[in-house]
Simulated assay, not measured.
Amino acid sequence: MDYFLLNLMPDENPDYCFLDSYPEGLGLKTWKLHKGVELGADYPKDARIYMSDDEPGIQLPDLIGNTRSMLVVSRNLQESIRHVNQGPTEYLPVAIYNHKKRMASADYFIINPLGTYDCLDLEKSDIKYHEGQLVKVHEHVLDPRKLSSAPDLFRIREEPEAYVVSQRLLEVWLDMDPRPSNVFLIDLEQSQP
């Protein structure tokens, strides 16, 4: 099966809104959204995020680009993920507010795949280390031997801010009418066993 890296900062359409903040009231718990740790009761009731003042777009796409490595999606995209993905995942409702601080939609979710998945071929991937600590994954190469029990949406162990989507989930998205907007995927190479 093929796998794809989800692009969380697509810049194809300047009319689409963009986010550069976390949900209001999350405080110091934002790290949990980066690491795939369950938020549970730490997630604020009536969570809201404001559109970035630095970006003029106001249209709401199915996947909202952001600088915070959050997977922010419409109800339609959330339902398709929930239907296909069997991995442990939090579906956190969030309202999107426009530049004038008025609610644009209360029908969005932050998808938080819990945990990470050991999926990279560490020898074939281009990974930068500094003093034994991982700094950045420049090129992701998957190890097919590690993918036999992979869910359809997961985080990479070495880079928890990266989201991987399976071919199965992509096919569901391609069959949707209309197709989800602002969803851009990058093919992930797999090493030869």
Rank of each mutant, 00 (worst) to 15 (best):
K146E: 05
Y163R: 11
P151Q: 03
V165G: 02
P113Y: 10
N98R: 05
M103I: 11
A104D: 11
Y163G: 04
A106M: 07
E131Y: 13
L153Q: 05
T116E: 06
E161N: 09
R102I: 10
H140R: 11
L142H: 00
H130W: 15
A104K: 12
S125D: 03
L92V: 07
I156K: 00
F154K: 00
D152F: 04
L92W: 11
L122T: 12
R155E: 05
L114K: 06
I156L: 08
S166T: 07
V165D: 02
L169N: 05
I96V: 12
S148D: 13
L169G: 00
Y91G: 09
S148F: 12
K101H: 14
Q167L: 15
M103T: 11
R168C: 04
L120C: 06
E131R: 14
G132Q: 09
R145Q: 14
I127G: 09
S105A: 10
E159D: 15
Y117V: 02
D126T: 08
F154I: 09
G132L: 07
L170D: 03
D152I: 04
E90Y: 08
V165C: 08
I156H: 01
C119I: 01
V135Q: 12
L169A: 07
N112M: 05
G132R: 02
A95D: 11
P160F: 05
L122V: 13
P160H: 01
L114S: 04
C119M: 01
L134R: 14
R168D: 09
K124C: 09
R155P: 07
P151N: 04
L114W: 10
P144T: 02
K124A: 15
Y163N: 03
I156C: 01
Y97L: 08
M103E: 14
L114I: 12
N112K: 05
V164T: 01
L120T: 02
C119D: 01
S105H: 07
L120H: 00
D121A: 06
D107T: 09
V135L: 11
S125V: 04
Y117S: 01
R168A: 11
E161F: 02
T116Y: 01
N112A: 03
L114A: 07
N98Q: 03
P93C: 04
A106T: 12
P93E: 10
S105F: 02
Y117H: 12
K146S: 00
T116D: 07
V141S: 00
S105I: 09
Y117M: 08
D143T: 00
L134D: 04
K128W: 10
L120V: 04
V164D: 00
V165M: 14
A150H: 03
K124L: 11
R155A: 02
S166L: 03
V165Y: 00
E158A: 10
A150L: 07
D121R: 04
G115C: 08
R145A: 15
